[in-house]
Every structure is written in structure tokens, then in C-alpha cells.
Amino acid sequence: EEKRQVKQVAKEKLLEQSPNSKVQVRRVQKQGNTIRVELELRTNGKKENYTVEVERQGNTWTVKRITRT
């Protein structure tokens, strides 16, 4: 359940930055209360990979860091 929520948060964050792209989740890793989500962003056939680190704060998820990989 929490992985599902985190995927959603990570996707939304990337789509905010580039709204007309397609996002696909590649991998989800958990480390303590930080969850790392690896995503693939496609814009006009151009692929970019991103890693989004999401942290739990109380009962909400906040995006800590977005890295292009």
C-alpha cells in the first residue's frame, strides 16, 4: 500500500515538471523511511531516467530529491 502511494507521489511530481510526458515506474526500493523510486520519463520519444527519493513525514509523503540518472 505505501509503495503504491509513493509511486503515485513520484509520478505526479515528475509530471508537474513536464506535463505532456509519459512516466513509467521501473523500480521501488525501501531504505528506512525513505523510498527510492526509479522512473522512466518519455517526452516525444526521448527517454530520460530519474530517481525520486520520497520520505515519510507524519502521514504524508514528501519528495526529498529528484536525480536524473
Score class of each variant (00 low, 15 high):
Glu40Asn: 05
Glu55Asp: 05
Ser21Ala: 13
Leu15Asp: 02
Val63Ile: 07
Leu41Asn: 01
Leu39Ile: 10
Ala10Gly: 03
Arg65Met: 11
Thr51Glu: 11
Lys46Met: 11
Lys11Asn: 02
Gln5Tyr: 09
Gln5Arg: 14
Thr67His: 08
Asn49Lys: 14
Gln24Ala: 12
Val37Trp: 01
Val6Gly: 06
Gln8Thr: 07
Leu14Gln: 01
Lys22Leu: 13
Val52Ala: 06
Ser18Pro: 01
Val6Lys: 02
Gly32Arg: 04
Gln8Trp: 02
Leu14Met: 13
Arg56Leu: 11
Arg4Tyr: 09
Thr43Lys: 10
Arg56Cys: 07
Gln5Met: 13
Arg26Met: 13
Arg56Phe: 11
Arg27Trp: 14
Glu38Cys: 08
Gly58Cys: 05
Glu40Met: 11
Asn33Ala: 10
Asn20His: 09
Gln17Val: 12
Pro19Ile: 03
Trp61Phe: 10
Thr43Phe: 12
Val6Arg: 01
Asn59Gln: 10
Asn20Thr: 08
Val52Lys: 00
Val23Thr: 02
Lys11Arg: 12
Thr60Met: 13
Arg4Phe: 09
Ile35Leu: 09
Gly58Gln: 06
Gln5His: 10
Thr67Gln: 08
Ser18His: 15
Lys3Met: 15
Glu48Lys: 05
Lys47Pro: 06
Val23Asp: 00
Thr67Asp: 06
Glu38Ala: 09
Thr51Asn: 04
Val25Asp: 00
Tyr50Lys: 00
Arg26Leu: 15
Gly32Ser: 04
Gln29Ala: 11
Asn33Leu: 09
Lys64Glu: 03
Gly45Pro: 01
Arg65Leu: 09
Lys46Val: 12
Asn33Glu: 09
Ser18Tyr: 15
Arg26His: 08
Gly45Thr: 07
Lys3Asn: 14
Lys47Gly: 04
Val28Phe: 12
Val28Cys: 06
Gln24Arg: 15
Lys13Thr: 10
Val6Ser: 05
Leu39Lys: 00
Glu1Asp: 07
Leu14Phe: 04
Glu48Ala: 08
Gly45Arg: 06
Asn49Glu: 09
Gln8Glu: 09
Arg4Thr: 09
Trp61Glu: 00
Arg68Thr: 04
Thr67Trp: 15
Leu39Asn: 00
Val63Arg: 00
Val63Ala: 04
Gln29Trp: 15
Glu48Val: 08
Val52Asn: 00
Glu48Asn: 04
Arg4Leu: 08
Arg65Glu: 08
Ser21Cys: 04
Lys3Gln: 14
Thr62Tyr: 15
Lys47Cys: 08
Glu12Asp: 14
Lys13Pro: 02
Ser18Asn: 15
Arg42Leu: 13
Arg4Ala: 11
Thr62Pro: 01
Lys47Val: 13
Glu2Cys: 08
Asn20Arg: 07
Val9Asn: 02
Arg42Tyr: 15
Ser18Phe: 15
Lys46Ser: 09
Thr34Asp: 04
Val37Leu: 06
Ile35Ala: 10
Gln29Met: 14
Val37Tyr: 02
Gln57Pro: 02
Thr67Glu: 09
Glu12Val: 05
Glu16Met: 06
Ser21Ile: 02
Glu38Asp: 12
Arg42Ser: 12
Arg56Gly: 05
Lys30Ile: 15
Pro19Ser: 03
Glu53Ser: 06
Arg4Gln: 11
Gly45Ile: 04
Val28Tyr: 15
Ile66Ser: 02
Gly58Arg: 04
Tyr50Glu: 00
Arg56Trp: 14
Leu41Tyr: 02
Leu39Trp: 01
Lys3Asp: 15
Lys11Asp: 01
Lys3Ile: 15
Thr51Gln: 07
Arg36His: 13
Lys64Asp: 02
Trp61Asp: 00
Thr69Lys: 09
Pro19Asn: 03
Thr67Arg: 09
Trp61Thr: 02
Val54Pro: 00
Val6His: 02
Val25Lys: 01
Glu48Trp: 11
Ser21Pro: 02
Glu55Tyr: 12
Pro19Cys: 04
Glu1Lys: 12
Leu15Gln: 06
Gly45Leu: 06
Arg65Lys: 13
Val9Thr: 05
Ile35Thr: 11
Lys64Ile: 15
Ala10Asp: 01
Leu39Tyr: 02
Gln5Glu: 10
Ser18Arg: 10
Gln31Phe: 14
Val28Ala: 05
Glu1Tyr: 04
Asn59Phe: 07
Lys13Gly: 08
Val23His: 01
Lys3Ser: 13
Val52His: 00
Val23Trp: 03
Glu16Tyr: 02
Leu39Met: 09
Val25Ile: 10
Gly32Pro: 02
Arg36Phe: 15
Ala10Met: 03
Lys13Ala: 15
Val9Ile: 14
Ile66Phe: 04
Thr60His: 13
Thr67Gly: 04
Gln8Phe: 04
Thr43Trp: 09
Lys3Glu: 15
Lys11Thr: 11
Val9Leu: 14
Tyr50Asn: 00
Gln5Ile: 12
Glu12His: 07
Arg27Ser: 11
Glu55Cys: 05
Thr69Leu: 12
Leu39Ala: 08
Val23Phe: 02
Thr69Ala: 09
Thr62Trp: 14
Ala10Asn: 01
Lys46Tyr: 12
Gln5Leu: 12
Arg26Lys: 13
Val9Trp: 03
Gly45Lys: 07
Lys22Ser: 11
Thr62Cys: 06
Trp61Met: 05
Gly32Glu: 05
Ile66Gln: 01
Asn20Lys: 08
Thr34Tyr: 12
Tyr50Ser: 00
Lys30Phe: 15
Glu38Phe: 15
Lys64His: 05
Lys46Cys: 08
Thr67Cys: 08
Lys47Thr: 13
Asn59Glu: 12
Val28Gln: 02
Leu41Pro: 00
Lys3Leu: 15
Thr62Asn: 08
Leu15Thr: 04
Gln5Phe: 11
Glu48Asp: 06
Glu1Thr: 06
Asn33Phe: 09
Ser18Glu: 08
Ile35Tyr: 15
Gln17Glu: 06
Gly32Ala: 05
Asn44Glu: 12
Thr43Asn: 11
Val9Gln: 05
Ala10Thr: 03
Lys46Asn: 11
Asn59Thr: 10
Gln17Ala: 09
Asn33Trp: 06
Val9Asp: 01
Gln17Met: 15
Gln5Val: 10
Gly45Asn: 08
Val54Leu: 12
Asn59Met: 12
Thr69Ile: 12
Thr69Arg: 11
